[in-house]
């Protein structure tokens, strides 16, 4: 790895961009499969917002196509939560709830970054969407409740990574206040889960194998397959356009 690549990979903007791109791609996988048409459209719209964020952030760092399509798995800096497979609808919604609230709180702090100031208003709608679906699934039928609880339990281990400070991410010269962010996130999630009649897991957020090394470029098994699908067209047909 060259020095300039190493420097690029250490940029906190890259982590934020990768979060947005990877989650956008995951949400895009719902196209043609969502439970109802309205949700198909909603998830696609959220994916589009995230793609817009990713493009704006990549634009600050270099060539967006190179960054999206020509990096290897270990050069991606997204948190592992964003790459988790869609699973059932409850899994996707809980992933959205965890991520959108985190993104809303983080972007809310980044008051000197035009992209964050703009996107935070959009992310609030993503969070709102996830929140109401969480209530509906958790406090719905026995099956929807059970699936929502399973999603919360399964994804919980990936939430610790969200609060690992991103080196170099500052607001007007000061580091982001990660403690406040975590406390706000915890309070919000506990409240939503409670209203949804769901349990906050007691398990530690970082299990024995230390879930959450996405920021260091270590990803979970399914991410490689996702990346292969996302990148194969560009890699097979360099410069392809339509």
């Amino acid at each position: 790895m060259t020095d300039s690549t190493a420097a690029l990979l250490a940029r906190p903007e890259l982590a934020l961009a990768d979060d947005a791109l990877v989650l956008s791609h995951r949400l895009g996988e719902w196209a043609g499969h969502a439970p109802v048409l309205e949700e198909e459209v909603a998830l696609a719209n959220i994916a589009l917002d995230l793609l817009g964020q990713a493009r704006a952030l990549y634009g600050e760092l270099g060539d967006e196509d190179e960054l999206a399509y020509l990096r290897e798995e270990r050069q991606f800096r997204n948190c592992q939560l964003t790459e988790q497979p869609n699973g059932d609808f409850a899994t996707t919604i809980v992933r959205q709830l965890f991520f959108s609230r985190w993104q809303e709180l983080l972007y809310g702090q980044l008051t000197d970054r035009p992209l964050a100031v703009k996107a935070v208003k959009e992310v609030a709608y993503h969070r709102d969407h996830a929140e109401h679906w969480t209530l509906r699934l958790g406090d719905g039928t026995p099956e929807s409740h059970e699936r929502a609880q399973r999603a919360v339990d399964d994804l919980w281990r990936y939430t610790g990574e969200l609060f690992q400070p991103l080196e170099g991410l500052t607001v007007e010269g000061h580091p982001v206040d990660w403690d406040t962010l975590r406390v706000s996130w915890d309070g919000y999630v506990a409240d939503v889960l409670d209203r949804a009649t769901l349990r906050v897991p007691e398990s530690p957020r970082q299990s024995g194998w230390r879930a959450g090394a996405g920021r260091q470029g270590l990803h979970t098994e399914s991410f490689g397959r996702m990346l292969a699908e996302m990148q194969h067209l560009h890699r097979s047909h360099p410069g392809a356009r339509w």
Partner: peptide, 13 residues
């Protein structure tokens, strides 16, 4: 409200 996101992100159905 039928859906928070409609044919485009800027609209609700």
């Amino acid at each position: 409200l039928l859906s928070r996101f409609s044919s485009t992100a800027c609209k609700a159905l």
